[in-house]
Nucleic acid binder design. Structure first.
Length: 900
RNA sequence: GGGCGGAUAGUUCAGCGGAAGAACACCUGCCUUACACGCAGGGGGUCACAGGUUCGAACCCUGUUUCGCCCACCA
């Protein structure tokens, strides 16, 4: 083994991370196998493990959510790669229609341009330029995190291949009547100037006014009841009223069939009955405005009412709004309410808090708006999506999310997929100007498929971004073409994402995957929690509480950040992150580094075999623990419980290896117990580090690769990089069950003695001459007796005495503590000072040496030898030998005390 | 209105049927040749409340209180 013992005294990630990432990339270690191709050959007997990354927005930059999500996926991919699976982690980015368009619009505004002043073609060109400039930023950031993605397969949702898939899907769905075009009430953002889907509307409580308005009877019968009172929050929509509704079984239903006069417009409208009215709410009378309210729209449909539009797509009152034409919604609201008051029809106005929809992208209030849009008929697709989960073909982690999914899927409504923006996949539909027929086709058609006219124009709208995202698991692998990747890596193994996009994305991928691949898009879905700031608030630029993962990588290293994210994660609870929490794990990287440094300082180049007869308790214990950790880590990762996996590795390294094993192995590593023991400890240490580096690699790829190399396991030592080294498995040879309990005896005793020492106020320089242990437990006393030197090492005690009754010792200056196994006594008077102990020994030695030199001079004197009797000479000779031995012993003694 | 999740040490959270744990923070000692990004020790908890199941409950069941989140056609 070629060891590198020349490690820095503390771990600094700079340089190391970049070095290894470049190395991995240059060796194509993340490039997935193209199975059955001439260069890659047959698939692994283990099979495949594939993940498609949730594609981040091209204009975005890496935030903590991405960092967490990507770390999770990377841990799985790296583990599976080491386990011998054919791993594909497919990366890419999303064109993010409205979001990106908004960003670029804001950018060109600085130069005084608008998208309309540029025109469609030029504007789209601008967005592409933007994408070329900044679209790569997030990819670079992912690389710094250590993502082991196959960058050779990187995709973008507007790539040619993916665009082709989008068209194919659109056409097939249209032909199956699963896509249709129609005039419906949709959510309209007057700022983005486009329709948005139900999911893109976010409801928020806002202050508003609740107007009580009287609608007089118009049929002359109501002499006594001169009218009814409706309630509304939007008086400007009174201009579009075409009816008033009551609940059929309410008190108010007695007026059904009568007519009232709508204020301002003077329109005579009927009172109708509809179940949608809550008789308990407001006055129990609801004005019906089918063109400007989603509920009213449905009521209008049921009762065949006119859809009277009074507001246009820009949020301006239109020609139907009489004198209010040209006003904005806000202006019209003020004016109409004033005018109603003037007419004496405003009964009262209340302040209320009500929930209002806002555009997810720009926070503008969303208006219900009647317009012609494209929709996906979702129900038939959803039914299948529900079934596969019920049948267990897709498993959710944590399981509870399954319910959320079912709830949405079982009540799913048609999906509005057309957007009145320019950045995205343009809808492949052409309307014939002559016959009005709509031609929907994969390739741009030259003529109307019905009448053959060449006078056809393509639909102006583009598709919802999520339409292309829904195809991501198979469109990225080449669909609709047949392709070895698609055949081998689809369905993917796992989807990792946040709960916020279960409806937007996960459910739609399931529906599309089933429709077009006839198979689920992934077998497991892992829904992770949200990252929040330390106070539990959502991180956002506006509140200034963002912890930038790139800053954290600069400060603490990618490994520290990754370990923190992994270890802090728990199932089903949000993660409250702070810089200091990440720091804790940076310290862990240093601890690992130094433990490895210690090991390297104590290992020879030659690799030692583990010889069982030379092992002592702590050796057997750490070998046994290592096997347990190998097994449990593997199991936890299989269950996607990376939080527990990371935490248990942390505890194992810090608590078991550093705090106990290394401390206990020091005497033998220093050679105090002879060569055999030194070899044994070296062999054990090597095994432990070899295993733990492998186990930690998915979590902290960079340090582990660096240390792997330093131990000589990497290419310099004629091995392989850790990235592609074999994942460890439990070695049954190293199962030492009894070591677990025996070690507990020892640890418990050490803790108690240390505790007693602290109670007695002893300094580290003070040596306890002896502790007395009273116990009936033979096994316990045997274990302690055979580990005296470790005990001395760990708690600075010279000797242990066992006794059945310590009664006579319990006088003055005695401290004691009872444990589960024994009662332990320490006498405050029975303390040796290390320095004076050494002085005492030095004195002894001096005296001995004096005697010895006298002896030796006698033996060197010829007249003494010739005159003295033979037995006296022999006696003197014996004495000198004894003295020499004793000096040797005292020397050793001094050495070991000095070490304490 | 429906659904989901949380309530455990000062703080952030693990634990989810068998003697209350970690990390920060706090207090006391220590620069002991792997590590002060460290070592050793310490204080601190009716595990939200009330019932129940069990030999045994922080953990299971039933309520209650309370804080979040998601969905839904309260105009």
């Amino acid at each position: 083994m070629k060891r590198n013992r020349d490690l820095e005294k503390s771990y600094s990630p700079e340089g190391i991370e970049q070095k290894w990432y470049d190395d991995w990339i240059s060796k194509d270690l993340f490039v997935a196998k193209t199975v059955n191709s001439p260069q890659d050959g047959a698939p692994s007997p283990k099979g495949h493990f594939s993940i498609v990354i949730p594609p981040p927005n091209v204009t975005g930059s890496l935030h903590m959510g991405h960092a967490f999500n990507n770390t999770f996926q990377d841990i799985l991919c790296r583990t599976r790669r080491m386990q011998g699976y054919d791993v594909l982690w497919l990366p890419g980015t999303d064109h993010a229609g409205i979001a990106t368009q908004n960003v670029v619009e804001r950018d060109i505004e600085k130069g005084g341009a608008t998208r309309h002043s540029l025109g469609r073609e030029k504007f789209v060109q601008k967005v592409w330029e933007w994408k070329e400039l900044y679209g790569n930023r997030i990819i670079k950031q992912m690389k710094r995190l250590g993502n082991s993605c196959d960058w050779s397969r990187e995709r973008f949702t507007l790539d040619d291949g993916l665009s082709k898939a989008v068209r194919e899907v659109f056409v097939r769905l249209y032909k199956k009547d699963l896509i249709y075009k129609g005039k419906y009430i949709i959510n309209w953002c007057s700022r983005c100037h486009t329709a948005i889907s139900d999911l893109e509307v976010e409801y928020e409580d806002v202050n508003g006014k609740f107007y009580y308005v009287k609608y007089p009877f118009a049929d002359g019968e109501g002499a006594k009841d001169d009218g009814i009172i409706i309630t509304t929050t939007r008086p400007e929509t009174i201009l579009g009223d075409v009816a008033v509704a009551v609940h059929p079984r309410s008190e108010n239903s007695r007026f059904v069939g009568r007519k009232v006069r709508v204020p301002l417009t003077g329109r005579i409208v009927p009172i109708i009955e509809d179940n949608m009215v809550d008789p308990e709410f407001g006055t129990g009378y609801v004005k019906i405005t089918p063109a400007h309210d989603a509920v009213d729209y449905l009521v209008g449909k049921r009762h065949d009412l006119e859809q009277l539009q009074v507001i246009d797509s820009k949020g301006i009152m239109n020609e139907n709004a009489l004198s209010y034409q040209g006003l904005t919604i806000e202006e019209a609201r003020k004016k109409t309410s004033e005018d109603i008051s003037k007419l004496g029809l405003m009964v009262k106005v209340e302040e209320i808090i009500h929930s209002l929809g806002h555009c997810q992208r720009c926070r503008t209030t969303v208006e219900p708006f009647l317009s012609e849009q494209w929709f996906v008929r979702t129900k038939p697709l959803a039914d299948r999506g529900v079934k596969v989960v019920k049948d267990g073909l897709i498993k959710w982690f944590p399981e509870q999310w399954e319910k959320t999914y079912f709830q949405w899927m079982e009540n799913v409504r048609d999906w509005c997929i057309s957007r009145q923006i320019w950045w995205g996949h343009r809808i492949p539909a052409w309307t014939c100007q002559d016959c009005g027929h709509i031609t929907v086709y994969e390739n741009d058609p030259a003529e109307c498929e019905k009448c053959g006219s060449i006078n056809i124009v393509q639909d102006e709208d583009v598709l919802d971004t999520w339409f292309s995202s829904a195809l991501w698991p198979f469109s990225t692998m080449g669909w609709p073409e047949k392709n070895p990747d698609l055949e081998y890596y689809y369905p993917t193994s796992l989807m990792v994402t946040g709960f916020d996009i279960i409806f937007f994305w996960v459910s739609r991928m399931i529906m599309m995957g089933l429709e077009f691949m006839d198979e689920v898009p992934f077998k497991d879905v892992y829904i992770h929690s949200l990252i929040r700031d330390e106070k539990g608030h959502k991180m956002s630029k506006s509140s200034g509480n963002v912890i930038d993962p790139l800053d954290m990588i600069d400060k603490y290293g990618a490994d520290g950040l990754r370990m923190a994210l992994a270890a802090l994660s728990t199932q089903g609870r949000d993660i409250l992150l702070s810089s200091s929490k990440i720091e804790t794990f940076r310290f862990f990287m240093n601890k690992l580094w130094n433990a490895a440094r210690f090991a390297l300082m104590n290992l020879d180049d030659e690799k030692k075999e583990i010889i069982f007869s030379d092992l002592r308790l702590h050796d057997r214990w750490i070998l046994d623990r290592t096997q347990d950790v190998i097994e449990s880590t593997t199991k936890l990762i299989d269950e996607y419980n990376i939080g527990e996996a990371a935490r248990s590795l942390y505890d194992f390294v810090w608590g078991d290896i550093c705090d106990w094993y290394i401390e206990m192995a020091k005497p033998s590593l220093h050679g105090d117990e002879g060569d055999k023991r030194r070899n044994a400890s070296q062999a054990v240490l090597e095994h432990v580090f070899h295993s733990v580096l492998l186990l930690l690699h998915p979590f902290t790829p960079f340090v582990t690769e660096e240390l792997w190399d330093a131990f000589g396991y990497g290419e310099k030592g004629c091995g392989k990089p850790i990235v592609i080294s074999e994942w460890p498995v439990r070695d049954e040879c190293f199962r030492f069950e009894s070591s677990k309990n025996e070690m507990i005896f020892l640890q418990e005793t050490v803790r108690v003695i240390r505790n007693l020492r602290a109670e007695a106020g002893l300094t580290p320089q003070q040596l306890v001459n002896s502790v007395y242990i009273q116990t009936e437990n033979k096994e316990y006393s045997d274990i302690l007796a055979s580990n005296k030197s470790q005990l001395a090492m760990l708690c600075k005690v010279k000797d242990i005495e066992f006794m059945s009754d310590a009664g006579e010792k319990k006088t003055g200056g005695c401290l004691s503590e009872v444990t589960a196994f024994a009662e332990i006594y320490l006498f405050v008077g029975d303390i040796l000072d290390i320095d004076s102990e050494i002085k005492r020994l030095e004195k002894d030695m001096e005296a001995l040496q004096k005697n010895l030199s006298v002896n030796l001079s006698k033996l060197g004197n010829e007249s003494f030898i010739s005159r003295a009797p033979a037995e006296v000479v022999e006696q003197e000779r014996q004495r000198s030998i004894e003295a020499q031995a004793q000096i040797e012993r005292i020397k050793n003694n001094m050495e070991s005390i000095r070490r304490l």
